[in-house]
Computed example of a mutant assay.
Amino acid sequence: MEDFNWLQLLNPEFYILLEFGGIKIGLFVVLFIIFAETGLLAGFFLPGDSLLFLAGIYSETLMSQVSLGSDFLNVTVFALLVSLMGILGNMAGYWVGAKSGNYLFNKEDSFFFKKKYLYQSKAFFEKYGNRAIVFARFLPIVRTFAPVIAGIVSMDKKKFMFYNILGSALWSFSMIFAGHYFYAFFLDKFGIDLKHYIEYIVIGIVAVTTLPVLWKILKKRVHIE
């Protein structure tokens, strides 16, 4: 940690390879981030999609201390753990929304809370209804506030849990398995180690996941003007 740079916090690889006292803690850090991003309002700035894709690439490293002896079993159990944390995170977000009511819409902006993201997520929820809980998993920022909105509007708990479990499973398994097997494919077929191109992968994933959101925001502003 002697060469720590604050910019490292924006790099998903930093969390995955994190060690404390010589012990690898990346697995626990990744699981906490998934919970924080989907369950704590302050987690909207944390890496999500890029973190899971890279976690898939580094799944062998992350599961090294709890290896189950099978590559497929290791990545499957890892995806299940991530899915579970995503489910628990959304449950926490729903609880916050249900308990806070409209308080959050009157709350002042801070470094960890931006009211505009709440309104954007509300509009997204109103457009897609219950399905928003699933779709939101694949959209930065929105996935943090969507369960909160669900709690505020008192979405039926059984329906919420169904879409919560479905969305979390689809998100975690698709991103982690994609990272894991794309890495193996490029390494086996072309001799290309994707770990050498992490920066480009992160930039690509961030661009793909955030551009649609930014485009909608820009269109909305232009329309208002």
Score class of each variant (00 low, 15 high):
Asn130Met: 12
Ala169Tyr: 11
Lys114Phe: 01
Ala146Met: 12
Ala169Pro: 00
Ile149Gly: 09
Tyr117Lys: 01
Phe113Gln: 01
Asn164Leu: 12
Tyr128Ile: 04
Arg143Asp: 11
Asn130Pro: 00
Arg131Ser: 13
Lys122Tyr: 12
Ala132Pro: 02
Phe111Tyr: 12
Ile149Glu: 07
Lys127Asn: 12
Ser168Asp: 10
Lys159Asn: 14
Tyr128Ser: 06
Met161Gln: 08
Lys159Ala: 10
Tyr163Leu: 10
Ile152Lys: 00
Lys122Leu: 15
Ile152Gln: 09
Ala123Thr: 03
Ser168Ala: 15
Lys157Ser: 12
Trp171Ile: 04
Ile152Trp: 02
Gly151Trp: 03
Pro140Leu: 11
Val153Asn: 12
Lys114Ser: 03
Ala146Pro: 02
Tyr163Trp: 14
Ala150Gln: 09
Glu126Lys: 13
Lys116Trp: 13
Leu170Thr: 05
Lys114Arg: 15
Phe173Ser: 01
Phe145Lys: 01
Phe135Gln: 07
Lys114Ala: 00
Tyr163Thr: 05
Leu118Asn: 01
Ile133Pro: 00
Val153Tyr: 13
Val148Leu: 04
Asp156Leu: 06
Lys116Ser: 14
Lys159Trp: 05
Pro140Met: 10
Val142Phe: 09
Ala132Ser: 15
Lys159His: 11
Phe138Met: 02
Phe160Trp: 10
Lys115Asn: 15
Gly167Asp: 08
Lys159Val: 08
Lys159Gln: 14
Phe138Thr: 03
Arg137Ser: 08
Tyr128Asn: 13
Trp171Glu: 03
Phe145Ala: 09
Thr144His: 06
Phe124Asp: 03
Leu170Ala: 14
Ser121His: 09
Ile133Val: 15
Met155Asn: 06
Val142Ser: 09
Ser121Leu: 05
Arg137Asp: 02
Ala146Arg: 00
Ala169Asn: 10
Gly167Met: 09
Ala132Val: 04
Val148His: 05
Gly151Arg: 03
Leu170Glu: 09
Ile149Asn: 08
Lys115Tyr: 10
Tyr119Gln: 03
Pro140Lys: 10
Ser168Arg: 06
Leu166Pro: 06
Val148Gly: 06
Ser172Val: 06
Tyr119Asp: 11
Ala123Asn: 11
Leu118Val: 08
Arg131His: 10
Phe112Met: 12
Ala150Asn: 08
Tyr128Met: 04
Ile152Glu: 01
Ala123Pro: 00
Gln120Ser: 10
Ala169Val: 15
Gly151Asn: 04
Lys158Asp: 06
Tyr119Gly: 00
Asn130Cys: 03
Phe124Lys: 01
Leu139Asp: 05
Ser174Leu: 12
Ile149Arg: 05
Thr144Tyr: 09
Phe173Val: 04
Val134Cys: 01
Phe173His: 04
Ala146Tyr: 02
Gly151Val: 06
Phe135Thr: 09
Thr144Lys: 07
Pro147Gly: 08
Ile149His: 05
Glu126His: 04
Lys115Met: 07
Asn130Lys: 15
Val142Cys: 11
Ala146Val: 14
Tyr128Gln: 07
Lys127Glu: 14
Trp171Cys: 06
Ser168Phe: 04
Ala169Phe: 15
Ala132Phe: 03
Phe135Tyr: 15
Val142Met: 11
Asp156Met: 02
Gly129Gln: 14
Arg143Trp: 08
